[in-house]
Design a protein around this nucleic acid. Sequence first.
DNA 1: TCCGTTGTCATATCGCCATACGGTTATTCG
DNA 2: CGAATAACCGTATGGCGATATGACAACGGA
Lengths: 216, 216
Amino acid sequence: MDTVPRYGYGVPRVADHEARRRQVAEAVEQLIADDGYDGVTVARTAARAGISVGLVQHYFATKDDMLLHTFTLLRERVERRTMHDADRAGQAGERIEHILVPALREMLPLDERRRRERRVLQAFAGRAVENPRLAEALRASDSHLEGVLARAIGNGKLCGEVVDDVNEADEAALLLAHVDGLAQLLYFDPARSAAESALADHVHRLFPGPCNHPRP
Amino acid sequence: MDTVPRYGYGVPRVADHEARRRQVAEAVEQLIADDGYDGVTVARTAARAGISVGLVQHYFATKDDMLLHTFTLLRERVERRTMHDADRAGQAGERIEHILVPALREMLPLDERRRRERRVLQAFAGRAVENPRLAEALRASDSHLEGVLARAIGNGKLCGEVVDDVNEADEAALLLAHVDGLAQLLYFDPARSAAESALADHVHRLFPGPCNHPRP
DNA sequence: TCCGTTGTCATATCGCCATACGGTTATTCG
DNA sequence: CGAATAACCGTATGGCGATATGACAACGGA
């Protein structure tokens, strides 16, 4: 992922490629959040990022690449933030449930920042139906999250919090789908605080047992 | 689908306004399903509907109106299909749960037709973030469905299927959100049959009790 | 020092699309 | 029968936006 060749041979005028791309992606994200997906034009993006149209082209061959990269960075950021804790679920001897709930809660649009984020993700999701590359990226990103959750559920089985006969892949997908639905609900109806407890309930039903095998 | 009014000559003075608008909306829906939202242009829509650009303009002042009307008709159709049964939940003496589950199942993309439908709805949902009129229409449509569900849950309370201390408005919203998440999941992963049982489980948890007061 | 490469910019091009417009046909009503 | 009117068509227009192009600047290497 980060193994980009770095392009560092005896070349002149070395700029930080990744930083520039991040800068542009940041501008795109802001534009989507403010004006929607259709509000994104190469010209406006350049202006927002404080650079020229030509430079944007220099870093992204096509507008589509630009959007895709924006989406990728955004998802990576969300995943990093969300799953930072969840990934070591079952290692600390604490109940996995108690690690998972706040982690997943992080995905809900509970403040302005995350509402903006949701807005952008929603716009991307809408385009995914007509943009195969975006659809693939979305799928990949979801698969990754599902993998992390499935592992957490697997750990739950090992330590007795989860009953043995659940299919962790299914349950991970279902949990993620539920969280997504709740996020959608909260986006359009921020007052529905019941969504938060619904999330907790879901996780609680998944992890009903006590933690029998706390790690040292 | 094939019920295009065929415009028999000899009726030009007064044409069936609503039928024409339906015809155009139908074309729009097909275009979105086939080529995505951005694939919809007035010209292509006219071609698809077998009429001229000018005529489309004659029936819709603006492209936005055209799209909005398409969305409205689509949602109405889905609601009608879905809630036809659910609305008389608790009247026949049958368990409400057993009426609600197949009704809500209807919203899941379980066959090609509904996958196409989902595709279109997803595209619309994506634009709703940047289109206030669409957002409002979506909200209104959801509210309506929530109302129907809330009433069903209320009936459940009356006849003992639902415990008394649930908030039916909250539960209706949560149920709908869950169904939406599951629909999304199934769209991208049609093989996840666990989604269907998840829906049934949710409803079953909501309606745990027996039906004590069957109507005559 | 000078060459080649890369970073950067400004502007040109070219297609597409929503909407505007003017014309034609065919009813209905008086 | 003859306006008046609504359904309907084809094309013009004007703007916007992605991408192409060509020029210039800075810097590393020989």
